[in-house]
Nucleic acid binder design. Structure first.
Length: 874
RNA sequence: GGACGAUUAGCUCAGUUGGUUAGAGCACUUCUCUUACAAAGAAGGGGUCACUGGUUCGAGUCCAGUAUCGUCCACCA
């Protein structure tokens, strides 16, 4: 027999890269190498933006996906985790433009469209390589041979075809599902691009509110420069102040001369804002535009796509809106048209999510997707799917959020005026338009605009699987789980659902799981500029991957944000080390070979039966929790079992109980099952320990623990006997407690007398446990009952009386027992009250009633004995 | 304005369908280097589960309202 020599402290750095290479070389990340398996499991991984690096949020998501992947692989499923990267249109273009400006002092126009595109492409490929290594560091068991990029030609082609199909989807009135239309859109002057609603942020900003004289009105506006585009004044229909004026037309003096407006009444107008009358600028305000449509008002555009005043603005033409505002206000002052100005006006300004530039709402030609098309309403189909729970959402509460979002969705603007991304396959010639993948021929010019990033990533669920004829599509679609941060529900989850429903006529995935966001210790959002971010690689370097994985898996719940600090990761590093040392002990004790030994049932002790019962429960519960996405709970239970049951009690017992053959078999079996249960959480350390068992298979593809594995070594009587060890535990704890409270030096052995009452038969032979479990017990007497010694520390637990023979301070001892007594009495009063309630007896389940009665009886008998002892003390 | 969360120990958070005297980690106090582990062990202190009502034999858990904080959506000119 050789003793396993493992180092005292687990060193992840020496282990992780080695283990990952073994996994990769094994080929088992690729489901094609698990071909004997029938049932499949697939998770298409969300592609991170290929323009940077992974942050802790990515890490958290990947760890969750890998947990499920590894678990399902161990369940014997043909498992695919399919990785990829996203080109992230606007964001990457902004990042790269900043980069070339800083490093080379140039703009994208200096490079030209083709060269610019090529450079970003190379940049992304380079970043992807870096990020892939980060993903591997996390232990992600993904099939790298299938890795995809949203701009891979095969991926793009499928996505573009969808657009062509949608263009050709025409209802009876001639409306296309994908259409070009003039709409007011959110326009970012800096990006020179349209933005989708979800790409716009709102920020409270201090501005000014101008009260201007406006013909017969005085009205308040924060944007006086838009006066040049006004075509009406609107008031609330119930506003008595203006009732007589509605329907009339007025000439309004302005900086470019008089112009005519009509007064209209519309419920959108808030009577309490300003003077109750507002100017209507249909071309440059979403609300005004809606009012204009309702009242059939003309629209006059005065701001162009560079954010500057247009040629119809006289001397203000060419000014930015900001400049024009100043100039126009100055001129209006001269003309006496300014009533007064409020300086401290807080307004909610729309800004570009990517570059924080204020948005200009302007009318523009853009491509849209009709989400409520008559042939196939994306909105309605999605609603049905979510309502019917064809896709199950975790946590369940997010179903409501999804439905609420679907309710409020508008047509989706999919064109972006940027260079980085797939170009829209629409071709123009002499006012004609054709939508098809290839150029129709000579003289046709392709649309300049590219697609919104989410139009391609929204198709990720099937483009990655070689839709429509690929084997992967047949094998793995719809996938089992889709996991993403809760912040991208409207961006991505919803779009994947609608596009997949349209294209494949079925759901993209069966389960949709949202993770929360990770914040810093104080609950703030992590960001580079604040410098409060936790870098996953740095933490891995410091504490090991397994610790980082545990820190994001335990103590979090689906969809809820989590605060994370370094201290938490450190504490899990300590736990991983604990598991390492547990294994070190077990491996050293059992030596090499326990395989041929047979357990003799009659040699099993109460501790053996207790721990076997415990591990069986853990197997059932952890499996159940994982099935229900309760990862945190599963982890906590495993942690409790590992530390509090297995290490603190069973390992200690195993050091001296005298049935070594059985002990070694049980220790080995439990440790092996424990490693399997832990593997999806902490794959590296478990695989490393596993390798010390000289196993034929990698833990990676081992079989998930089952109860059958235990049934053949421990028989039925475990059910009745497993409780005995918990009695012993209670006695041992009570003795330790008594000694600690009374400050008995640990080395001092005390004669101990135990009166067991009814438990005599089962406890009488367990003296070896009571003596050896660090209780400092010297001579030990176990009797059914007997005389109460006068000089002793005393306690009673569920009818078992314990005396530690020692000199005592009678007054202090009386006081201690008095306190315990009064606690017990309060407890019994509460119990008695509950039991005396007739309704309780009638309506509560019988099992609960019996339980409560037992509790009361035990407590009452304890009180009796304790009172007797107190008498004796006096 | 609309929707959705959160509020449990000093801190970070669990608590699965309502049922032991409400848990963990960190921090704190006392003791111990005991032959797996001091990155450890033993023992302990600390909570009227935000508040007010309600349903129930029984509520941290279900319902209604209030307060505070947060997130998302819409947006006011």
């Amino acid at each position: 027999m050789t003793t396993k020599e493992l180092p005292k402290i687990y060193d992840p750095k020496k282990v992780e890269d080695k283990i990952y290479k073994i996994w990769e070389d094994s080929g088992f990340f690729n489901p094609d190498n698990l071909s004997e398996r029938k049932e499949t499991y697939a998770n298409i991984l969300p592609p991170p933006n290929a323009n940077g690096e992974l942050h802790i949020g990515h890490a958290s998501g990947y760890v969750t996906m890998d947990l499920l992947g590894r678990y399902n692989r161990m369940l014997g499923k043909k498992t695919l985790l399919l990785p990829g990267k996203d080109h992230a249109g606007i964001q990457t273009q902004v990042v790269y433009e900043k980069k070339i400006k800083k490093e080379r002092g140039i703009s994208r126009y200096d490079l030209g469209r083709d060269k610019f595109y090529q450079e970003i492409y190379d940049f992304c490929i380079d970043r992807s390589q870096y990020m892939r290594n980060q993903e591997k560091k996390l232990g992600l068991s993904a099939d790298w041979s299938r890795e995809k990029f949203t701009l891979n030609p095969d991926i793009v082609n499928i996505a573009l075809e969808t657009f062509v199909e949608m263009y050709n989807e025409i209802d009876s009135e001639g409306n296309r599902m994908a259409y070009k239309g003039k709409r007011i859109i959110n326009w970012c002057p800096r990006c020179a691009s349209a933005l989708a609603d979800v790409e716009v942020e709102h920020a409270e900003t201090q501005g000014k509110l101008y009260w201007i004289k406006y013909g017969p009105f005085v009205l308040a506006t924060s944007r006086p420069e838009t006066k040049l585009g006004d075509t009406a004044v609107a008031v609330h229909p119930d506003d008595d102040r203006y009732r007589d004026m509605v329907g009339k037309k007025y000439m309004i003096p302005g900086v470019l001369g008089e112009f005519e407006v009509e007064v209209i009444a519309d419920k959108e107008v808030d009577m309490n804002f300003g003077s109750g009358a507002i100017k209507v600028t249909p071309a440059h305000s979403f609300v005004d535009n809606e009012i204009a449509i309702r009242h059939n008002l003309p629209s006059r555009q005065i701001i162009d796509e560079s954010g500057k005043m247009m040629n119809n603005c006289g001397k203000y033409a060419g000014m930015t809106t900001q400049k024009a505002r100043e100039a126009i206000v100055a001129d209006m002052k001269k003309m006496g048209l300014i009533d007064h100005i409020e300086d401290n006006y807080i307004q909610n300004l729309s800004i570009c999510e990517r570059c924080k530039t204020p948005i200009e709402p302007i009318p523009s030609e853009q491509w849209f997707i009709n989400v409520n098309h008559k042939n196939f309403s994306l909105k309605e189909e999605a609603r049905k799917i979510i309502l019917n729970e064809d896709i199950k959402i975790q946590p369940a509460s997010f179903k409501k959020i999804m439905l609420n979002w679907i309710e409020n969705v508008h047509d989706w603007c999919i064109s972006r005026q940027i260079w980085w991304g797939p170009r829209i396959p629409a071709w123009y010639k002499d006012g004609e338009i054709k939508v098809q993948l290839e150029s129709p021929g000579e003289g046709w010019v392709q649309e300049d605009d590219t697609f919104d990033t989410w139009f391609s990533s929204g198709q990720w669920a099937y483009t990655t699987l070689k839709y429509p004829d690929g084997k992967d599509f047949k094998d793995f679609y719809p996938s089992n789980n889709m996991i993403m941060g809760r912040d991208i529900l409207p961006f991505w989850a919803f779009r994947m659902i609608i596009l997949s429903l349209y294209k494949t006529k079925t759901i993209p995935f069966k389960n949709l799981y949202f993770t929360g966001l990770i914040r810093d210790e104080k609950g703030h959002k992590m960001s580079k500029s604040k410098g409060n971010g936790i870098e996953p690689l740095e933490m891995i370097e410091k504490f090991g991957t397994d610790s980082v994985r545990l820190s994001v898996l335990i103590g979090s719940s689906p969809g809820n944000d989590m605060n994370l600090g370094e201290i938490k990761i450190e504490s899990y590093r300590n736990f991983v080390n604990k598991l390492w040392n547990i294994s070190r002990f077990v491996l050293a004790k059992i030596g090499d070979n326990t395989a041929d030994e047979k357990i003799k049932e009659e040699n099993l002790t109460y501790a053996d039966k207790w721990i076997v019962d415990k591990i069986k429960k853990i197997i059932v519960e952890v499996t159940d929790d994982l099935e229900k996405y309760n990862f945190s709970l599963a982890g906590e239970k495993l942690q409790n079992f590992t530390k509090n049951d297995f290490a603190d009690w069973y390992l200690e017992v195993a050091k001296f109980e005298n049935n070594q053959v059985e002990k070694n078999i049980i220790l080995a079996k439990i440790l092996k099952d424990l490693l399997k249960l832990w593997h999806p959480f902490i794959p590296f350390v478990t695989e490393e320990i596993w390798s010390n068992f000289n196993q034929a298979k990698l833990l990676l593809i081992e079989t998930w623990p089952t109860l059958e594995n235990w049934d053949d070594i421990v028989g039925e009587n475990i059910e009745t006997e497993r409780y005995i060890f918990t009695k012993i535990q209670a006695i041992v704890t009570a003795i330790r407690n008594l000694r600690a409270e009374n400050k008995i030096e640990p080395t001092k052995k005390l004669k101990t007398i135990i009166y067991t009452g009814n438990d005599f038969e089962i406890i009488k032979n367990e003296g070896i446990l009571i003596k050896n479990l660090r209780t400092g017990v010297g001579e030990l007497v176990i009797k059914k009952n007997g005389e109460k010694p006068a000089e002793a520390l005393y306690t009673i637990a569920s009818g078992i009386e314990i005396y530690l023979i020692n000199e005592i301070d009678k007054v202090a001892e009386q006081q201690r027992i008095q306190t315990e007594l009064s606690n017990l009495k309060k407890y019994t009063t509460d119990l008695a009250q509950r039991l005396s309630n007739k309704e309780f007896a009638k309506k509560a389940p019988a099992q609960i009633v019996v339980q409560e009665k037992e509790k009361l009886a035990k407590a009452q008998s304890d009180i009796l004995e304790m009172e007797k002892y107190l008498e004796k003390l006096k």
